[in-house]
């Protein structure tokens, strides 16, 4: 019952978001003088920018002193251990990935992921070894944020969450839904092992961060406005995940003249 009320509340929030905020968030400022075709989001709807920037600075410090060193240490572990941890955590996410694939009408992907989950949970020893990949069952990620977007909900405004980082109203709602509906988390809570959720989230963060150490550092070291660069990157990345289309089709080709090089 508690969960039902929670869900209705979230749905109400998201519906509000759709009606009042999606229009503004989808506003795109373009300057015809610079290019003839294509749309670029020069302005991302960010009404909480001053607060977001403060949280972003806090996250950045936390990243520098905790997450990045942990990720660097993690990268020093033998490759099979890193792969094993990453595969195991990925497999734990599969029940919700499958649910979201079906909710988005991706029947064949849902069936493929179900096969992947069964094979990896059994032959792959609780998901530690990615046997399914070798059988051609490709890993595809879907989450509640993507499902809500597929159902037509707008982004809402941009939010920087403490510790969790860049998000928007829709994706934050999706994240809350994930936390509330994850069967593994629910099982851990029922068994009185609530700290498992914290451990899982922390290891997952270190694992994900370890995969983008070079990219994050390059962006951080060379940005005039690191906050704006991360915000833009987040939106581009989420668009690609939501639309599930080839990146070459996704980002309009900037009309760049090479005639005066």
């Amino acid at each position: 019952m508690k969960f039902f009320i929670y869900f209705v509340f979230l749905f109400f929030l998201i519906s509000l978001n759709k009606g009042t905020l999606s229009e503004s968030s989808d506003n795109v400022t373009t300057y015809p003088v610079d290019f003839k075709t294509g749309t670029f989001e020069d302005e991302i709807f960010d009404p909480l920018e001053p607060i977001n920037r403060a949280i972003f600075d806090f996250n950045n410090v936390a990243d520098k002193i905790i997450l990045e060193p942990a990720a660097k240490g993690y990268r020093k572990l033998p490759s099979p251990i890193q792969s094993g941890i990453s595969n195991f955590l990925g497999n734990l996410k599969m029940p919700l990935v499958i649910l979201n694939q079906f909710l988005q009408g991706q029947g064949s992907n849902g069936i493929e992921s179900t096969g992947r989950f069964i094979v990896n949970s059994t032959a792959g020893v609780f998901g530690i070894i990615d046997v399914a990949d070798k059988l051609g069952l490709e890993e595809k990620e879907e989450d509640f944020g993507q499902t809500l977007a597929t159902w037509g909900l707008g982004d809402g405004f941009y939010i920087v969450l403490p510790i969790f980082g860049p998000s928007n109203l829709r994706d934050t709602s999706g994240m809350v839904l994930t936390l509330a509906t994850d069967p593994i988390n629910a099982y851990a809570v029922r068994e009185g092992e609530g700290e498992f959720i914290l451990l899982r989230t922390s290891i997952n963060a270190v694992d994900q961060r370890s995969k983008i150490i070079d990219e994050v550092n390059a962006l951080r070291d060379n940005s005039i406005d690191y906050y704006a660069a991360v915000r833009s990157s987040y939106y581009q990345n989420r668009k690609a995940a939501i639309l599930n289309i080839d990146d070459s089709e996704l980002t309009p080709v900037p009309l760049i003249s090479v005639e005066f090089e």
Binding site: F40, E41, D42, E43, I44, L219, S223, I224, D225, A228, A229, R231, S232, S233, Q236, T251, P254
Partner: peptide, 8 residues
């Protein structure tokens, strides 16, 4: 696109 957003 990231640079344009950042510079803007």
């Amino acid at each position: 696109v990231t640079k344009r957003s950042e510079f803007n």
